[in-house]
Every structure is written in structure tokens, then in C-alpha cells.
């Protein structure tokens, strides 16, 4: 195995992440405001399917953490398009390592940065008044990791079709946002009309959000093992699919 290759690709992603401090802060802005203002605004709203003892901010926080992981990981996957634009992709592609290795290295790198962003978001949500189960955070970490790997893979897969960064806005507005809004991050999916609720079952993030919520506040709409299985299957499939697409990609 070309572990050295995977390691250095991972390390590069991490170094780039740490150096882009303004991006770290910038990308956390929106989720923090979401959490703070939705938390305040819907503080007294009663959601019929939600047990009385769960406050809206406790319900919302795992969803917002998932959102951070979703956005960061998808973006890291798509950042291959930037590498193509700036030429660096070629340096990687002519190296004597397999495309699968490259894809895996990028996947792990992107997932790691998304995990770190997610952890920062958890820490910040404490400040806004979120009180999760501390023991549960370990399980939450597992769900976060799976979301991160899966959506970095999705980003990589998308990047193989995108030849410049112009399509980026389309991906955000017509793919990433619907995934987020459908996932039950902001409200229980049982509140949705039947048809839309069915659609939500095909959104992999639904299981991530539900699993995270179970781990952090003990409430979930599905059996957490079911969440775990669904997310795991999705994750493994995407890793393979993205590696296969990446291998086929032409770089001149």
C-alpha cells in the first residue's frame, strides 16, 4: 500500500486548512448565527413530535454541527477543482502512485478538516447554551467522521465533472443546501408532509443528523443502529465510487 502517499496528501490538506485562518472563521460564521438566532427565535415554539423536555437549542445544535461537517467536507472534496485550476493537480497525477491512493488521501484529508471544524462548532455551541451529554460526544464523533468521509467523497466525485469553479454556486444551492434542509437538522422530519418526509429518507445526512442527536441529547427519530448502518453503507459506497470516478478523470 502507498501509505506514504496517503499520509502526505492528508498532511497537505491539514496544512492548507490551518493556514487559511480567515476561512476557518468565515465558514463558522453562518452556522453560529443560525444556531444563536434560530435558538432564540424558536425558543418557545412547541414542535408536536418533539418531547417537551427537549429545548429547541438542544435539538438544533447537533443539526448545526452536522451542517458544518457537511459543508466543510463537500468543499474540501470539490477543492480538487482549484488544484486543477492552479495546476497542482498535475504534479499529483504524474507521480508514480495510483489514483485510488490519491483519492483516499484527499478523502481522509478533507474529512479530517471537516471533523476539526465540527469539533470547533460543538465547542462554540456550548457558549450559546447547548448542553449535550459528555459521554455521548464519543459516539457523536463516530457519526461526524462518517458524514465527513462520505461528503468529502461526494465532493471528489463532483470535482471530476467540474472543469472550472463556475459551477460551484450551483453545487452549493442545488445540492448542499437541499441535503441540509431535508436532513431534519432544523426540524424533525416527521413534521414534513408525507412525500417530502419520504424524500428525506433518501438523504444520507438524515441518518447522520439523527445519529448525532441520539449521541448528544438522547433523542432520535430512528434506531441509532439503523442510522449507523445506513450511513456506513453510504460512506463505503461513496468512497469506492469517488475513487473510481477519480481514476477515470482526464488531466492533461
Amino acid at each position: 500500500m502507498e501509505l506514504q502517499g496517503i499520509y502526505i496528501l492528508w498532511l497537505r490538506d491539514l496544512k492548507r486548512y490551518i493556514r487559511a485562518r480567515s476561512r476557518i472563521i468565515g465558514s463558522l460564521g453562518m452556522p453560529i448565527f443560525f444556531l444563536a438566532f434560530f435558538g432564540m427565535g424558536f425558543r418557545r415554539v412547541e414542535i408536536p413530535s418533539l418531547p417537551q423536555n427537549i429545548t429547541y437549542i438542544d435539538f438544533l445544535a447537533p443539526g448545526i454541527v452536522s451542517m458544518v461537517v457537511l459543508f466543510t467536507s463537500t468543499f474540501s472534496g470539490i477543492s480538487i477543482v482549484w488544484d486543477r485550476q492552479f495546476g497542482f493537480l498535475r504534479e499529483i497525477m504524474v507521480a508514480p502512485i495510483s489514483r485510488t491512493t490519491i483519492s483516499l488521501g484527499r478523502n481522509l484529508g478533507g474529512a479530517t478538516t471537516a471533523l476539526i471544524q465540527g469539533l470547533i462548532m460543538i465547542a462554540l455551541s456550548f457558549l450559546i447554551g447547548f448542553k449535550p451529554s459528555i459521554n455521548g460526544l464519543l459516539f457523536a464523533f463516530v457519526f461526524m467522521f462518517l458524514i465527513a468521509v462520505a461528503f468529502t467523497g461526494i465532493g471528489i466525485a463532483i470535482s471530476t465533472f467540474m472543469h472550472d469553479i463556475h459551477g460551484f454556486q450551483i453545487v452549493i444551492n442545488f445540492f448542499v443546501f437541499p441535503i441540509f434542509l431535508l436532513s431534519g437538522a432544523l426540524f424533525p422530519i416527521s413534521e414534513l408532509p408525507k412525500f417530502v418526509a419520504t424524500l428525506a429518507l433518501f438523504d444520507p445526512l438524515t441518518y447522520g443528523v439523527d445519529g448525532m442527536r441520539w449521541a448528544m441529547i438522547g433523542y432520535s427519530e430512528f434506531n441509532p443502529l439503523y442510522d449507523l448502518a445506513a450511513l456506513l453503507i453510504f460512506c463505503v459506497t461513496i468512497v469506492f465510487v469517488s475513487a473510481a470516478l477519480f481514476s477515470k478523470m482526464e488531466v492533461e
Binding site: 497537505r12 496544512k15 492548507r16 493556514r19 487559511a20 492552479f86 495546476g87 497542482f88 493537480l89 498535475r90 504534479e91
Partner: peptide, 11 residues
Amino acid sequence: VFQEPTLDLEL
């Protein structure tokens, strides 16, 4: 060494 630059400018 390619015609266009292929360095990672952040590194």
C-alpha cells in the same frame, strides 16, 4: 517541469 506552474502556493 510543466509549462504552467504546478506548485502549491500555500506551502
